[in-house]
Amino acid sequence: MASFGGDSWLTEHEACLGSGQAIMEKINQRDELQRSGSNYSKINADIRLSLRRFSQDIQHLRQQLTKASSQYHITQREAERRQGLLDNLLAKDKILNEAFKKDITYTAPERASLLNSNTAGFGQDTWGMESEETKGMSIDDIRQQQQLVIQDQDKNLDVLASVVARQKQMGETIGDELEQHNEIIDDLTRNVHRTDDRIHRETKHIRKVGEKAKDWAFYVIIIVLLIAIVVIVAVPAP
Rank of each mutant, 00 (worst) to 15 (best):
F218R: 15
K208T: 15
I221G: 06
R207K: 11
Y219W: 05
V224C: 13
I199R: 10
E202V: 10
R207F: 03
D197R: 00
L225V: 13
I227Q: 00
V224D: 04
I227V: 13
K212T: 15
A213N: 11
I221A: 15
G210L: 07
V209C: 12
V224W: 07
V209S: 11
R201N: 08
V209G: 09
K204Q: 10
A228V: 04
K214M: 07
A213D: 06
R207I: 04
R198W: 12
K208Y: 12
A228D: 05
F218Y: 11
I206Y: 08
I206D: 12
I199W: 01
I222Q: 03
I221R: 07
V220S: 09
I199S: 01
V230D: 10
R207W: 02
D197T: 01
H200E: 12
I221K: 07
E211C: 05
G210T: 04
I227G: 03
R198F: 12
A213R: 09
H200F: 06
K208C: 12
K204F: 02
V224N: 09
K214Y: 08
A217G: 07
K208S: 15
D197H: 00
H205A: 15
K212D: 15
D197W: 00
K214E: 12
I221D: 08
I221E: 08
I206E: 12
T203Q: 05
D215M: 09
V230P: 03
H205S: 14
H205P: 04
R198G: 03
Y219R: 05
W216K: 07
E211T: 08
A213T: 08
I199P: 01
V224Q: 09
I227E: 01
L226D: 04
Y219E: 03
E202Q: 14
V224H: 09
V230C: 10
I223V: 14
H205R: 14
V220C: 03
I199C: 01
H205Q: 14
V220G: 08
D215F: 05
W216C: 05
K204Y: 04
D215W: 06
I227Y: 01
K212H: 13
